[in-house]
Amino acid sequence: MGNAGRLTTELCGITLDNPIIPASGTFGFGYEFAEYYDINCLGTFSFKGTTKEPRFGNPTPRIAECPAGMINSVGLQNPGVHAVVEHELPRLRECFHKPVMANVGGFSPGEYAYTVEALDGEDCIGWYEINVSCPNVHAGGAVTGSDCRATAEVTRAVRRVTKKPVIVKLSPNVTDIAEIAKAAEAEGADGISLINTLLGMRIDLRSKKPVIANKMGGFSGPAVLPVALRCVYQVYEAVKVPIVGMGGVSSAEDVIEMMLAGASAVGVGAANLFDPYACRDIIEALPGALDKYRIGNIRDIIGGAH
């Protein structure tokens, strides 16, 4: 078997050429990265979080730097689902020819369902990633999916309107992430993705005020990898559905570690913002990393650390 076959994995019944999935919000609708490299080398990617209505997002500054990471407070800026269908997906289809992951946000179960229904006729969509975990759209950094009941309600509403795989994206800013994963699985989620960003803050020493206009934002980058690994490990023990593991992944070694924790596929987020070629380079480095750690096929190590 050549190197290519060693990287295949499966996510909710769909085979991925490799486990690498640029995370939502770091990869737009793909076409801008397609100017830099052929994005068909990716397993898939999760497109920019889409809501029922257009959203400008939060005031600026929206970005703060941290040691080994960053805080963002973009606030689900997107043109709204109808503009996404009309303007963004045609451009996406021109440069990406595999099933794509549609990331969906919302403010009520009905809004999530509305957006999924509006997208459901698009053949290019392979999975829905239901974001119940954005820390940037509610006052005080609260997330929709901060408890089992709210997560279950959103999952149920979305499950009712689509036959495509539904992956629920969870927040680490909760007491027990495994319980919330179980609640999503019980309502018919086909997969779980985690983690969204950690709620964080930075304060400017000159102005003595928070750097981010919205005060708080989502912390991501290499610093959060251990938190993400712990969460993936816990959720793997709690549910049977596959996991998309993400949080701080920026190398082939990180991908292997995340899959050993229990991920069937691996999201790469902040790394794309520092280096637009990050995902391509990780995919190219994976076969060598598998050799180094005496791994034959990457799919054989999923959950291997348990």
Binding site: G28, E32, F33, F56, G57, T60, P61, I63, V74, L273
Partner: peptide, 8 residues
Amino acid sequence: FGACLGCS
């Protein structure tokens, strides 16, 4: 380079 929407 236009990916993160941090500077909209």
